[in-house]
Computed example of a mutant assay.
Amino acid sequence: MSLVTAAVTALAVGCAALPVAALPGVVGSFEPADDRPPRRAVPSGPALTAIALGLLVAVAAVIYPHTGRLPAYLYLTVVGVLLATVDLRVHRLPDRIVLPSYAVLAVLLALPTVGEEAPGRWSRAVVAGAVAWLLYGGLRLLPGAGLGRGDVKLAGLLGMAVGWLGWPAVAIWFVATTMLSGLVAMALLLLRRVSRRDPIAYGPFLLTGALIAVLCTG
């Protein structure tokens, strides 16, 4: 049985890695929302491939042997790499990627819910997504918060993913995201890489925090 599980896991990682080669082209298709030029060049194919494959393997290793969870979290890993790269480059979290992912993730999370006979997990994921959306929606209204609507929508999506794993995962995600964003922003200010008025892409912090939560609790 362990050999079968390992084979299924390896196959899932291989399938998830198939679209990775197309990521540079997809990243380059998104233009900045404002009139500024892109803040970064499109990463090379080998660099994005190495990052995505490394993260796919790490997520699969943590989730093993729960193969039913693989489709949801491997999908989110690939989408996360794409969104983080786009946000770093043009400060956008495109609706045409984030919004359909709600439906995709809801369906993919239903698979392990049924397979593990844990109906409470799916309902908790929905509640966690709504809580995250409301929380970050409220934070966006605070003066100087620097959050965009795309950040709020992404937070709802990630709240679903980590919420399925449990409320401790949600807490880890929120704390990790807050600490990472604060530390990086402080470092950039001290190094004079940005000023207090310069926008900082928040999507990568949300995604990295979710990755930490999955690696800790997956």
Rank of each mutant, 00 (worst) to 15 (best):
Leu139Thr: 09
Pro119Leu: 08
Leu93His: 01
Ala60Thr: 09
Gly45Ala: 15
Val114Thr: 08
Leu142Arg: 10
Leu11Tyr: 02
Ala213Pro: 02
Pro46Val: 01
Thr67Gln: 09
Ala106Ile: 01
Gly166Val: 11
Arg39Asn: 05
Leu109Cys: 11
Leu93Phe: 02
Gly166Leu: 10
Leu190Asp: 05
Thr208Gly: 09
Val20Glu: 03
Ala103Tyr: 03
Ile51His: 06
Thr9Arg: 11
Arg124Glu: 13
Ala7Phe: 15
Gly54Leu: 04
Trp133Glu: 11
Val8Ala: 15
Thr49Tyr: 06
Ala213Ser: 06
Asp151Lys: 09
Arg36Pro: 00
Ala128Asp: 08
Ala12Glu: 04
Met179Gly: 00
Leu147Phe: 12
Val62Phe: 00
Ser29Gly: 15
Val62Trp: 03
Arg140Lys: 14
Arg193Phe: 00
Ala72Ile: 13
Tyr75Gly: 14
Leu157Trp: 09
Arg193Gly: 15
Cys15His: 00
Pro168Gln: 07
Leu188Lys: 09
Val194Arg: 15
Pro19Gly: 10
Asp151Gly: 12
Pro65Ile: 06
Val104Arg: 04
Pro204Gly: 04
Phe174Leu: 15
Leu207Ile: 14
Leu82Gln: 01
Ser195Gly: 15
Val152Pro: 15
Gly203Ser: 02
Arg69Gly: 04
Ser101Ile: 02
Ser195Tyr: 00
Gly144Phe: 04
Pro204Met: 03
Val57Trp: 01
Val27Tyr: 06
Ala125Asn: 04
Gly28Cys: 12
Arg140Pro: 09
Leu215Cys: 04
Val86Phe: 08
Leu11His: 00
Gly115Lys: 00
Asp34Tyr: 07
Arg92Asn: 05
Pro199Lys: 01
Leu183Glu: 04
Gly129Leu: 07
